[in-house]
Nucleic acid binder design. Structure first.
Lengths: 118, 118
DNA sequence: TAAATCTATCGTATATTTGCGATATAAAAT
DNA sequence: ATTTTATATCGCAAATATACGATAGATTTA
């Protein structure tokens, strides 16, 4: 095959379509069981106090804090200072948007036409 | 707060629930725009020939091969040798399963009860 | 048979993620 | 005022992910 000439670089992500980047960012936020667990915990609203989340996970407080930060950065949760604590909760608006993006991805038209194999 | 005692270790993923791990693995497979792009390309069945996928992406052949391997490992695609080429396609059965898992995650009951904040 | 084509894998470099303890800060409790 | 509690962030170490070129192996074409 004709070899592609590629410039030595390590960040190619920006060369993709913005909707593909967006979907991948949502997926990345969900790509660690701790973050899935945090979201489930918040959805069940057993509590939204940060420390309760920490107690719920087999991870140190600082590690949990980092996972919370990632979920916050991608917009899936919100944090609100409540006296000495921080109350986290799912950002329902962004959650819906994320859901729509992922569903659109999974609803891709799986054409039943057999081209070669498949 | 009482500090948790944690053994120095780098692999805590296995300490989570298996359904959380499963969801995170699917999400991880989707956490790079190149892999999203590959799946969309295959869904549209513009082709399922490996080399056409390589031509479609701004990445080298070896890098694309690695992304294909990850998608294959998680079960979202299948590869079939077709003479000198390899024909990749979406594993429709596993795709459906993955979709169900992600939809279940996004359909988490977002309790409307206000506990503290939220 | 030799050359060309296609793909996977190896080796390697860099970037990012994951994890922890320590610590800084802020509020609450004593 | 001091101590306790709660949280974020810093600094570091290890693991994993991302990317490439080179190359091996297999197949097809010339």
């Amino acid at each position: 095959m004709r070899y592609k000439i590629n410039v030595m670089s390590y960040h190619k992500k920006q060369e993709f379509k913005s909707d593909e980047i967006k979907a991948s960012e949502i997926a990345k936020a969900l790509s660690h069981p701790a973050r899935i667990s945090i979201l489930k915990f918040l959805a069940q609203q057993k509590s939204c106090i940060c420390n309760d989340i920490v107690e719920h996970l087999p991870l140190s407080q600082s590690t949990v804090s980092q996972h919370l930060k990632e979920l916050k950065n991608v917009g899936l949760i919100q944090g609100e200072i409540d006296g000495p604590r921080v109350c986290y909760c799912i950002d329902k608006e962004n959650w819906k948007k994320a859901k729509a993006i992922m569903i659109e991805l999974f609803d891709m038209n799986l054409a039943p036409i057999k081209i070669k194999c498949c």
